[in-house]
Simulated assay, not measured.
Amino acid sequence: MVSKRNFFNIMIMMVTLLFLFQFSMVIRAQSSSYDHNNAVSENPLSGQDAWQQAKMKLSALTEEDDPYVLFVGDAAGGMGQAVSSWCTYRKKNIIVTKSMTELTDYVKLMPEMIVLESESYALEGASLKKLEKLEKEGVIIVFGSLEDVDAIRNNSELMDFLGIQSIAAKEKQLTGAKLFEGFLLGGEEWYQTSENDKYAEEKQDLDLTVPWYQIGSGTKAYMVGLIKEKTGEKEQCH
């Protein structure tokens, strides 16, 4: 049986030990730097040193300026914004113009790539002649879309420049698309939904109604459209 006096002494000892242990933990926590990352810079990144596109004008270019991409079309349109975002991602400067006529022989630095919103910008004046000359000098020419089938059909020079041998149909319904190795990133890829998969068909965001251009034998294709099966094999629609 424990007397009241011994019980009181035991309680005093337990409280004292508890206080000592807790006090030591508090002192250790205050003297340590567990909540501080010494690897963090005192001056966090503000974005001031991030790469930014230079504001360039065709009339003010010099031979010492950095390479740039020329977009011919509507800068506020979907394609214009996509090209601008791509240039930012690739750290390339971009100049936007609404006509090929602004790219005169007086421009001291030619672009390394020209992206035309549609073929209509190659039909005005001597634009196609200029594109042919620049292509021979190593400038990459990209047509964002080929919208007016009749305009292309009636311009044999443009068809030769695009590598189109003939136009099989003004509109053709596709079942999907095939990307060959070497196009953008990755290897060969098929984009096609099964006729039995209604959900996947509803989620399809590709425009599957396109003109059918048949390219010449010397034209390299990176992407083709797919049409319905015939004689057991999948036909391809360029």
Rank of each mutant, 00 (worst) to 15 (best):
G216K: 15
K172F: 06
V96Y: 14
I152A: 05
V107Q: 02
G125Q: 09
L109I: 05
E201I: 11
I140L: 13
Y191I: 12
M79Y: 01
G163E: 12
M14K: 06
S32V: 11
L184N: 08
K57H: 06
G186D: 08
D65K: 12
V69D: 01
E137W: 07
S118K: 10
L185M: 06
G225Y: 00
I94W: 02
L208F: 01
V115A: 08
S33K: 15
Q192L: 11
S217I: 03
Q192E: 11
S217C: 03
L116N: 05
K98H: 02
F183Y: 15
S127I: 03
V83W: 06
Y89R: 09
M159F: 05
I215A: 12
N43D: 04
Q22H: 15
L185S: 14
W190Y: 09
S99P: 01
K108Q: 00
G144C: 08
S3F: 04
K228L: 06
T193C: 03
K133G: 04
Q52A: 10
V2D: 05
G73N: 05
A76V: 09
A39K: 03
T88D: 11
P67D: 09
E157M: 09
S59C: 02
A29P: 06
H36P: 03
R90A: 03
L206E: 08
N38R: 08
D66P: 13
V115L: 06
N9Y: 09
I167H: 07
E64A: 13
N38Y: 01
L45E: 13
V149Q: 03
E202N: 09
Q52E: 07
G73R: 00
L131T: 06
L179N: 10
R5S: 00
D49E: 12
F143C: 12
L61M: 11
N38G: 09
S194C: 07
S145N: 08
E63H: 02
G186S: 01
E124G: 12
L131G: 00
N9M: 01
A54G: 14
L185H: 08
Y89L: 05
L45D: 04
I215N: 14
W86L: 03
T16H: 08
W86D: 00
I215R: 11
E147K: 07
S166K: 14
N37S: 08
M1G: 02
F161W: 04
P111D: 01
F161H: 15
Y191T: 10
Y68M: 04
V72I: 08
Y222C: 04
G77S: 06
E117G: 00
Q165K: 02
M56P: 06
L17I: 13
L146N: 04
A122L: 05
I167N: 07
A54K: 14
K178I: 10
T231L: 14
D207A: 14
E202H: 14
I12G: 01
V107E: 04
V149W: 04
F23M: 13
Q236T: 12
L131C: 04
G77F: 07
A75R: 13
L208Q: 05
C87L: 01
T231Q: 15
P67N: 02
G77H: 11
D205R: 02
S145V: 05
E233I: 07
Q22Y: 14
E64Q: 09
H36G: 01
R5P: 02
F7V: 10
V115Q: 00
S31T: 14
N196I: 12
A122W: 01
H36K: 14
Q48V: 12
Q236P: 03
A151Q: 15
S24M: 11
A169G: 07
L128I: 10
K203Y: 06
Q192M: 10
T88L: 11
T62Q: 03
